[in-house]
Design a protein around this nucleic acid. Sequence first.
DNA 1: GTACGTCTTCAAGTGGACTTCAAGTCAAGG
DNA 2: CCTTGACTTGAAGTCCACTTGAAGACGTAC
Lengths: 141, 141
Amino acid sequence: MSGEIRLSIGEVARRAGVRTSKIRYYESVGLLGAPARSGGRRTYDGEIIDALRVVQLAQQAGFTLAEVRRLLRDFDAATPASSRWRAMAERKLREVAALIELARRRQRLLEALMSCDCGQLADCVRPTLVPITRASTVTRG
Amino acid sequence: MSGEIRLSIGEVARRAGVRTSKIRYYESVGLLGAPARSGGRRTYDGEIIDALRVVQLAQQAGFTLAEVRRLLRDFDAATPASSRWRAMAERKLREVAALIELARRRQRLLEALMSCDCGQLADCVRPTLVPITRASTVTRG
DNA sequence: GTACGTCTTCAAGTGGACTTCAAGTCAAGG
DNA sequence: CCTTGACTTGAAGTCCACTTGAAGACGTAC
């Protein structure tokens, strides 16, 4: 029990493939709890690697760090019935779907641009254009 | 010819559905030329609406404002043979395709998360995880 | 003793597209 | 004359996820 392995921040960074600054940053924004100290220096155990992995995973899934923080709290305060993290995931899923739709619009737009088919191009743009309203203040030169 | 209609920046903003600050901002970053002034105030003709529309269109296609600026210059200095804007559009098309790929990964990840299929989840994540390397500096204590 | 490497802290910088603010100008209307 | 509203300017603030820098402390190897 005395041989518990503790890692320096540099070692954690090497193992997890991140910069030390990122680990300190995560701590500063409340994603990671304050670790034990030894002579003023942070010391971690192996679990920190998993924690970093979870954050990385959630980020890959499109969550912002603020959202990851909420997710982690929800996981901890696990009310198994009304799992809020599922709601968050569903919302994010819709966001990602919308993102894909947007990207598809871009593709269509770019392809129209490339082929210089201006009619098609106008069709892509029209829905987002604000109709020109009647002038209310017109200056004459 | 004396009845040429000139618009105030506020009127342009209303017609185009943007804020005046955006118009000034575009001017400040060189997307729009300096307009004529009347008593110190900007006055525009109808073409400004089209210009704003073009910027909006290019943005929808995924170009940054810096890229839009380059696009406009290339359109002006139209060397019809070596049209650089086509190259830019092609590059952007590839960028958008990559973006869609990323979003699809996110979808898969989120769906795996929702179904709590951890094996599938690990498969999604594994390629981007850094393998844990041998410790070089381990603190005991 | 001194050079090296790692750690500590806090502050500020990055990029992109704007918005917001402060302080002042201008013309029209009452 | 005074208010109102739209305009002018430049500077600074916003969001996000970090990184970079400065300045200092500590331990270890030579």
